[in-house]
Design a protein around this nucleic acid. Structure first.
Lengths: 251, 251
DNA sequence: CGGGGGTTTGAGTCCGTTCAAAATACGTGG
DNA sequence: CCACGTATTTTGAACGGACTCAAACCCCCG
């Protein structure tokens, strides 16, 4: 059972300086962003904050959902599995993102599992805490609604692009997104990206096999669009990548 | 501009017998299902109900979103297009389903277009009407939240299946879903389905070309799993279809 | 009877998958 | 620090599937 840090305000990380969730909320743009100080205080007093190492499981498919998770630092992934061992990384979540809200709202067991992709901190909020806050602050429900509809739009966009783009186009598109999140830009417009995922998970995100992804990567290198070395990618320029994912028809 | 029927309670259809949305709400399970009679009355008084013929557009991508649409009768489709003429049918909606709520919640123009797939009735509710109701009945926000999270779960499930299943598996799966909605069961376990879509849209829903879909259909007929004649499908038994979509690995 | 859209079929090519093996990176313990 | 075992990634070859382009077909409607 996660316990650890709790509400101690004199803890190590700089994020612990301020009590509760105030620090998170200020730097990020979570669903709690417009909450008043009193509610934030309440939230901070009732959260359980826990550290996760890469690969560690936050919750698993089939687990009962007793509340809401919220990413504080790091990167986590939502994964779905089936009986035959297929694994797909459905979504990546970053500080401020909520996790497990579908199951919480519907009072149902988790349909996806969640694991840390890098060193991360994830907070946990009991269902009762959220319910109390929702009844006291109706505006919070609107924020949740805004958040879920944004995610829904993203999901539909992903479905559309999966239907319309080629494997290569999908990967190039994924690469540009990852570059924005995990890349550092250099003066000459080139970027260096440290991917938070292995080949298998990258392949699952574009709906193909890791062998196929390897060949796609080879071709990208042959075209001079990127150089791959393990999880490190060097991209001379994002422009041709974006152009590629725009044009890339179905085959 | 849609106008027409409005609040007249002595109109033609049987659904018009009861005033307002009460009839819709009772038979279906819309987001308004648990609303009190007074609110339903308010809703019914402020809705604009309109009839659509097959192919007619309810709203289009880029249109400003001034409120919420709700399917009353029939079947409608949500479609997304891109610059190069690609068209994907993202979702089908049935009586009780809400449309355009993402754009309404986010106060943004529509990202998808919506058109009637068969003869349909769709109601329109002004943003202000929904806002008033939301402020008077906070429980309505919870219902919306439940609805959007359900749709989000469906979307993720679709992404997962697109990533994991073959074209044939995806189509068989789609076929079983359409059979449940649009099929009539016979005594011997066979079903007759009248598809509400043409081949092109069917193909777009599984992310392939209509030529490829034609060949998939040929193979299904060769396997004796279904007989196709235009938009009419006869399915001897759903059992082998379900088994097929379970097993069908990626290729 | 002649469009015109939608659907099916055909041939060729490319792409993606499978199975298998080699190469590389990684973590552990000696 | 190196050796080792393990997991991941890359590459190869063969097969099947899917895409493109194109033509024929069908059906509904004017």
């Amino acid at each position: 059972m996660p316990r650890s840090v709790g509400r101690r305000s004199s803890a190590t990380g700089s994020i612990e300086r301020r009590s509760g969730c105030a620090a998170c909320v200020l730097v990020n743009r979570s669903v709690f962003k417009d909450l008043d100080p009193e509610s934030l205080e309440y939230l901070g007093a009732h959260r359980k904050r826990r550290e996760y190492r890469p690969g560690q499981v936050v919750f698993a498919m089939g687990d009962s959902c007793g509340g809401l998770h919220c990413v504080s630092t790091g990167t986590v992934g939502l994964r779905r599995l089936d009986e035959r061992g297929n694994s797909v990384l459905l979504r990546m979540a970053y500080p401020g993102d909520a996790l497990g809200y579908c199951s919480m709202v519907q009072r149902r067991d988790h349909l996806t599992s969640c694991e840390a992709l890098g060193p991360s901190h994830v907070c946990y909020l009991e269902q009762s805490t959220i319910d109390t806050l929702l009844s006291r602050r109706p505006a919070l429900a609107s924020q949740f609604l805004r958040y879920t509809t944004q995610e829904l739009d993203k999901a539909y966009q992903a479905i559309f692009q999966n239907a319309v783009m080629s494997n290569r186009g999908r990967f190039v598109h994924l690469l540009t997104i990852l570059a924005e999140r995990h890349g550092t830009a250099h003066g000459d417009g080139s970027h260096t990206v440290t991917l938070p995922l292995g080949r298998r998970d990258l392949a699952s995100m574009i709906g193909t096999r890791h062998e196929t992804l390897s060949r796609i990567i080879s071709r990208l290198e042959a075209d001079g669009m990127a150089r791959f070395s393990g999880r490190t990618v060097h991209i001379p320029s994002l422009t041709p990548l974006r152009a590629d994912s725009e044009v890339a028809g179905h085959a």
